[in-house]
């Protein structure tokens, strides 16, 4: 094949990127170009538990999914509503404790505790964070950073909910297949759900709040209300992760308010690419297994995430997903002429 025989199919890719997916109707190949990455992601996630060898690594997959849920909630809040939450642990802890208490004290089955913990936990978190919602700036970050730490102290001090020992002996999922597929499907559900949401009209309002809250106020909408709705959605996702976590490990304790849950989702989001929603999930699939491999280093892991996070945010702030997207759209094929 000489160069004369080849031509780079160059022009129409640019048009495709900008034409909002409508070109997919042109041909099967175009359709494939559009849905292939999504299919790969979905199929890959669903097949993952089947190909992973040991029970240990299957448990890691569940972990990845829980972190992915948290990362989704962080990404949604930070890049679509403009609220930087440094306290993912608050969502996890609240969800976990509620699920644990419902299960242990009221004897409710798992199928009830998880949704109940998600909704009521979200309500509690929203209420807790409400004072800083009318304000712009760093207040939300600060307050959300403080809550998990304060929660730890309060539970310790009052010796409620099992005090420092935590609550043990919570029902587990029927078997590990249910467990894994439940969390995996939740991740996919919320990933595509949130992607859809941010392009709906109410999603545009959220983005408006982030872009320019004064104009939203001038349009006769209460920013506090819309922020609260967004926080509710995000914390529901986080609490869901917490509730699943407590059922997976059959335990709920103050370690759930630990820093890991706050920092890893942030690191995953930054690495994966903030604002893409799929990026944070991918970031979790990179970071969590690495962190499992580094388990023996103890708290150095947190330092390790923090350094990765720092490097990415300072030097490569677009993240892998945005980079990948760009490269995918620039992808050129040699075609015969």
């Amino acid at each position: 094949m000489t160069t004369a025989d080849r031509r780079k199919e160059r022009l129409d890719r640019g048009i495709k990127v900008r034409s909002d997916g409508i070109y997919a109707l042109l041909s099967w190949r175009e359709l494939g170009y559009l849905v292939l990455p999504r299919l790969v992601l979905i199929a890959g996630l669903l097949l993952l538990p089947l190909v992973v060898p040991s029970l240990y690594w299957q448990r890691v997959i569940s972990n990845v999914c829980l972190y992915a849920l948290l990362a989704l909630s962080f990404d949604f809040l930070a890049h679509y509503v403009g609220l930087v939450s440094l306290g993912g642990a608050l969502f996890i802890g609240t969800g976990a404790y509620i699920a644990a208490l419902l299960n242990k004290n009221l004897g409710l089955p798992l199928i009830l505790t998880i949704p109940m913990a998600s909704v009521s936990g979200a309500a509690i978190c929203t209420l807790l964070l409400l004072p800083c919602l009318p304000l712009r700036g760093v207040y939300f970050a600060i307050v959300s950073l403080m809550y998990p730490l304060a929660m730890m102290r309060i539970i310790e001090a009052l010796n409620i909910f099992g005090g420092t020992d935590g609550i043990m002996g919570i029902d587990s999922f029927p078997n590990h297949w249910v467990e894994q597929y439940f969390v995996l499907i939740m991740v996919l559900l919320f990933l595509f759900g949130l992607r859809r949401l941010v392009n709906l009209d109410i999603g545009l309002v959220f983005r408006g709040v982030k872009d320019n809250d004064q104009a939203v106020r001038a349009s006769g909408m209460s920013i506090t209300y819309y922020k609260a709705v967004a926080v509710f959605i995000a914390s529901a996702i986080g609490c869901l992760a917490g509730a699943c976590l407590t059922h997976i490990y059959m335990f709920s304790g103050i370690s759930l308010f630990a820093l890991d849950f706050s920092i890893l989702p942030i690191a995953a989001t930054v690495i994966g690419g903030g604002g893409t929603l799929a990026g944070p999930v991918i970031g979790c699939f990179i970071l969590v297994p690495i962190s499992e491999l580094l388990r023996e280093f103890g708290t150095l892991r947190i330092a390790f995430y923090a350094i990765i996070l720092m490097a990415f945010i300072v030097f490569k702030s677009e993240g892998l997903m945005v980079y990948g997207q760009r490269k995918y759209h620039q992808f050129e094929r040699w075609v015969k002429i």
């Binding site: 930070a78 890049h79 930087v84 930054v270 923090a306 350094i307 996070l309 720092m310 945010i313």
Partner: peptide, 14 residues
């Protein structure tokens, strides 16, 4: 704003 908070927090944590 977002990067400021995350970056300084990450430095502290590290």
């Amino acid at each position: 704003a977002i990067s400021e908070i995350i970056a300084s927090y990450a430095i502290g944590l590290a």
